[in-house]
C-alpha cells in the first residue's frame, strides 16, 4: 500500500536514512556500531532515486561497486575485474557493457544497478521497488533473476514491491505491511492465514485464495 512505509523501512535497514525508533542488528551487531566501510561490505543497495549522472559506461558504473575493496585511488585489481565480469554475466549484460547508461532502457538500467550491487559482493542486497516503471515481462524477468541470484549465490535479497501477485509466486518469504498488524511468512502460509484479505477494502478488491491473486469487484 502506498504511504505505509515500505521504502522507509528498507532505507532504514540499509542505513540510508536514520531510524525513527527501535534497533536494527546485523549478526548481533547494532547497525549504528558499524562504520561506513564495514557496512559497505555487508549491505549493498539499489534505490529508486535517479542517478546523478548517466554519462558512465555500464562497466564503469558496475566497477564502482568495488569501491569498498579498492585502494585509496580506487584502482581495480585483477580480482576486482573478475568480480565485475561475474556480476555482468549474472545479469546477462555482456553485450551492453561498453554502452553509456543514458542509452539504456529502464529495464536495462535496473539490471545495471543490480549488477553494481552484486559486484559489491555483500551477503545482503536491499532493493527499493526494483520493478516499478517496468512492463510485466521485465518485472518478472528482474524478479526471477533476483531469485536465481539469491539461491545460486546464497545471498539475502530484500525488496519492496506493490506487485503482490508476482511476489506470491516468486518470493521465499514475504512481509506484508498492514495496519494494525504486519504479517511475515512464506507466501502459502500467508494465504492460509488469510493475511491478504484485509489488505484492501473488500468492497473494491477481493483476494482469491485459490489462484493467489487479487480480483476487482464490479
Amino acid at each position: 500500500m502506498n504511504g505505509i512505509g515500505k521504502s522507509t523501512l528498507l532505507r532504514t535497514m540499509g542505513r540510508v536514512q536514520p531510524k525513527l525508533s527501535g534497533n536494527i542488528a546485523l549478526n548481533n551487531t547494532t547497525l549504528e556500531d558499524l562504520n561506513n566501510e564495514e557496512l559497505a561490505t555487508q549491505i549493498s543497495i539499489v534505490l529508486t532515486e535517479p542517478l546523478a549522472t548517466k554519462n558512465l559506461t555500464v562497466k564503469e558504473l558496475i566497477s564502482l561497486g568495488r569501491q569498498p575493496y579498492t585502494n585509496w585511488l580506487g584502482l581495480l585489481t585483477p580480482q576486482d575485474h573478475s568480480k565485475i565480469m561475474d556480476a555482468i554475466k549474472m545479469v546477462e549484460l555482456q553485450a551492453l557493457q561498453d554502452r553509456k547508461c543514458y542509452e539504456l532502457s529502464d529495464g536495462q538500467l535496473q539490471k545495471v544497478l543490480i549488477a553494481r550491487a552484486l559486484s559489491q559482493d555483500t551477503p545482503i542486497i536491499l532493493l527499493d521497488e526494483p520493478t516499478t516503471h517496468l512492463d510485466l515481462y521485465h518485472k518478472v524477468q528482474i524478479l526471477k533473476m533476483l531469485k536465481r541470484i539469491a539461491h545460486d549465490l546464497h545471498k539475502t535479497i530484500v525488496f519492496t514491491t506493490h506487485e503482490i501477485d508476482i511476489a506470491i509466486q516468486l518470493c521465499d518469504k514475504m512481509l506484508i505491511l498492514d495496519r494494525p498488524t504486519c504479517h511475515f511468512g512464506a507466501p502459502c502460509e500467508l494465504i492460509e492465514n488469510e493475511s491478504f484479505q484485509t489488505l484492501f477494502p473488500s468492497d473494491t478488491i477481493r483476494f482469491d485464495a485459490k489462484t493467489g491473486s487479487f480480483k476487482i469487484k464490479n
Binding site: 540499509g14 542505513r15 540510508v16 561506513n36 566501510e37 557496512l39 559497505a40 561490505t41 549491505i43 549493498s44 543497495i45 534505490l47 532515486e49 542517478l51 546523478a52 549522472t53 558512465l56 558504473l61 564502482l64 561497486g65 569501491q67 569498498p68 579498492t70 585509496w72 585511488l73 580506487g74 559489491q120
Partner: peptide, 25 residues
Amino acid sequence: SIFSIKSLNALLLGENYARSMGVKI
C-alpha cells in the same frame, strides 16, 4: 583533490549510493 578522486567517483551516483559504498560523506 587527488586524495578525493575515489569519493568523487562514488559521488557520481549520488550521496546515498556513495555512503553505501563506504564513502565517509
